[in-house]
């Protein structure tokens, strides 16, 4: 027979009105780690149920994207991807981009989608957007395998520098979580967020060098502004890690600062709004 952890047996819960700004209680989050796992697992498990092709969609989506954009942008619009074959060029950026966009979409609607949990059970609310960001990882890993296969086919060398994609992927998820925290909390009160989100995603895609190479001239001010978009650094860094070329320069710190600001403000905003989720959702 399992016994209750001694750590939890003596826990005292204090009820009091929520005041001011709160950070994240990491200890509590650690206590609920299994719930993060189970919610992530549920999201993955449920996503392709009732779809005739099931999990095959995870493979088809990046393939179709690569194919379509190759035809439209490389053959059609004659975008120059340099020495890199365009399918590799677009897949390498599509991976972190899709990880980001997927995570953002899911986390933004996550609180509203889990309203039944929020109004009935207590747990740190941040777990919900966190789990939906993590559940995008499965698609990412499968896409990564496809990319590696494509690299073998195109005889692109796989070097140790490729390991840099790990921090860049984590960064993409942090950005998604940061924005997702803002959007999910706003969405509880204002469902408009759900309507605006597709446009934001699309515009964000256009200001990120996913479909086109990053050669935007040398005007330092313009470059700095462009780099305020943290996904620029991620996508560029991802491409660099796999294929070399333009190494991320000092402007990545602008991206980094933007991420940090977004993330911290996102947490605080979320924690502040959290108190009213159950009443408003």
């Amino acid at each position: 027979m399992a016994t209750v952890d001694s750590q939890t047996a003596n826990q005292t819960v204090v009820l009091k009105p929520a005041k001011g700004w709160l950070g994240v209680d990491l200890k509590e989050l650690w206590y609920y780690r299994e719930l993060v796992y189970f919610l992530t697992w549920r999201d993955i498990k449920v996503r392709y149920k009732q779809a005739a092709l099931g999990i095959a969609w995870v493979i088809l989506q990046p393939l179709i994207t690569a194919l379509v954009s190759t035809f439209v942008f490389s053959r059609g619009l004659k975008i120059d991807s340099g020495s890199l074959p365009y399918p590799l060029f677009v897949l390498s950026a599509y991976l972190p981009w899709h990880l980001f966009a997927n995570s953002l979409t899911k986390s933004s609607s996550s609180l509203v989608g889990n309203a039944n949990l929020i109004t009935k059970v207590y747990f740190p609310r941040i777990i919900i957007p966190l789990a939906s960001v993590l559940s995008s990882l499965l698609d990412f890993f499968i896409s990564l395998v496809i990319l590696l296969i494509a690299m073998v086919i195109y005889k692109a060398p796989i070097t140790l520098t490729a390991l840099w994609i790990i921090p860049f992927s984590v960064l993409a998820m942090i950005i998604a979580l940061a924005v997702g925290l803002w959007f999910s909390a706003l969405n509880v009160q204002y469902r408009d967020v759900q309507q605006i989100l597709p446009f934001i995603s699309q515009i964000w895609l256009y200001i990120t060098p996913v479909l086109y190479p990053i050669n935007i001239g040398s005007n330092p001010i313009f470059k700095a502004i462009y780099n305020l978009n943290p996904m620029v650094g991620v996508v560029q860094g991802f491409r660099w890690a796999l294929f070399g070329g333009t190494q991320p320069d000092a402007t990545i710190w602008i991206s980094g600062a933007a991420i940090l600001l977004l993330f911290i403000s996102g947490i605080y905003f979320f924690r502040r709004m959290e108190k009213t989720f159950a009443d408003v959702v």
């Binding site: 209750v4 939890t8 047996a9 003596n10 826990q11 005292t12 819960v13 204090v14 009820l15 009091k16 009105p17 929520a18 929020i118 109004t119 009935k120 059970v121 207590y122 108190k275 159950a278 009443d279």
Partner: peptide, 19 residues
């Protein structure tokens, strides 16, 4: 059960709460 916070007042629950 901590689903929502009180507007005023205080309370303490000692032990693991299952709601």
């Amino acid at each position: 059960s901590r689903v929502t916070d009180p507007t005023e007042g205080v309370g303490e629950l000692r032990g693991r709460v299952g709601s």
